[in-house]
């Protein structure tokens, strides 16, 4: 019967197209908006990606990587003395003004508006001359603007007037000591906060600064609400369009389902037929929607537009939600068919 159920579904191409449009649009909206959301959120912990230290040490009050609370320079010595530390380096992060000597400001992509920068060019940071000795490609930050990497001493020179300049300490554990283990020792011995550089936001480790940063933005900004609304919209649009279309598909076939019931098909068989139809449409709709989301994402990445990170978890979640939409659609249909009296086939 399932083969016939599928033939019934594919036989009505107009209805099928409408159903697939609803499901695909819903999957597209959910997958694309989630991927852009996670892409933008990945910008929030950019320093963790660009600077590959295994352990980060900060002031105990620090909650996320963009909110550095200056430490005392002597803290560096305290950290270096902790058992298991191979080396510890100071890190200063701050926003500075940078302009070319002709007065051009550096653009958000790190390029002056006139010509691209190259090794050997000079520009000014807080009115102090700087020379480019190398160019590296790094991940863009949430706040925009280029990064300037230099030695700690030079960095202090560019931020004249700041009393404390130590934002973080970058620490490498000795061989045989895990980052998490070292974090525990640093916190116990110094009273400072130590973090791992783990950037897998799906894991459950408590010491990841990247994950803390992600959740800080999640709870303290309107970004999740904004994108969450779009994802929910996708879900509701999917349920509305697919549910309605599938319901109208069932309504059109109601007398045939009644005939099938009269011929001796139990509600179990009919329910399974409807599930097969709904889930098949859901599967195709998900494939189309996720494929379109991928294509849009690739185009966005190529054009350097808003970030796009499609984690496998996003695809799985979208798949589950589309199947949920299909399930709801099938249930609506099953309720309708279950209320049809098999005897109605004799009423013309």
């Amino acid at each position: 019967m399932y083969r016939l159920a599928l033939n019934m579904l594919f036989g009505d191409r107009a209805k099928l197209a409408m159903l697939l449009c609803g499901l695909a649009f819903s999957a597209l909206l959910m997958a694309q908006q989630s991927s852009v959301f996670f892409g933008i959120m990945s910008w929030t912990y950019t320093p963790m990606v660009n600077i590959r230290a295994q352990v980060w040490v900060s002031d105990p009050m620090v909650e996320q990587v963009n909110d550095a609370k200056p430490l005392r320079d002597t803290d560096l010595g305290r950290v270096r003395s902790v058992d298991g530390v191979a080396w510890a380096a100071p890190l200063h992060t701050s926003f500075v003004q940078a302009r070319m000597q002709d007065g051009n400001l550096l653009g958000p992509d790190g390029k002056p508006r006139s010509t691209p920068l190259k090794v050997g060019d000079t520009f000014e940071i807080n009115d102090i001359q700087a020379r480019i000795v190398g160019i590296c490609k790094v991940k863009r930050a949430f706040t925009g603007g280029p990064f300037v990497y230099t030695t700690y001493d030079r960095a202090k020179g560019y931020t004249l007037g700041a009393r404390r300049t130590l934002s973080f300490m970058l620490v490498e554990p000795q061989k045989g000591v895990t980052p998490s283990e070292l974090c525990g020792r640093i916190e116990r011995d110094t009273g400072l906060k130590a973090w791992t550089s783990d950037t897998v936001i799906w894991s459950w480790g408590e010491r990841s600064l990247a994950r803390n940063t992600f959740w800080w933005f999640w709870t303290n900004t309107g970004i999740p609400f904004s994108f969450g609304t779009a994802v929910l919209l996708g879900l509701f649009v999917g349920i509305a369009i697919s549910g309605q279309t599938f319901y109208s598909f069932v309504l059109e076939n109601l007398k045939y389902f009644a005939a099938i019931k009269a011929m001796g098909a139990g509600m179990g068989v009919i329910a399974r037929m409807l599930f097969v139809q709904a889930f098949t449409a859901g599967l195709i709709g998900f494939g189309l929607g996720a494929g379109m989301a991928q294509a849009i994402g690739r185009a966005m990445i190529e054009k350097g537009m808003p970030p796009f990170v499609m984690y496998p978890q996003i695809l799985w979640a979208t798949f589950a939600l589309v199947l949920g939409i299909s399930f709801v659609s099938a249930i609506i249909g099953i309720i309708k068919v279950s209320r049809v009296d098999a005897a109605s086939v004799f009423r013309g």
């Binding site: 019934m8 009505d12 005939a259 019931k261 009269a262 011929m263 001796g264 139990g266 086939v345």
Partner: peptide, 24 residues
């Protein structure tokens, strides 16, 4: 359920409006 099983095994139907499924 028993009636459904009974119909499945013992009955054939010819309806006034044929009730043939148009998409099959």
């Amino acid at each position: 359920e028993e009636l459904t099983t009974f119909r499945r095994k013992n009955l054939g139907f010819v309806f006034q409006s044929f009730n043939l499924i148009p998409t099959l």
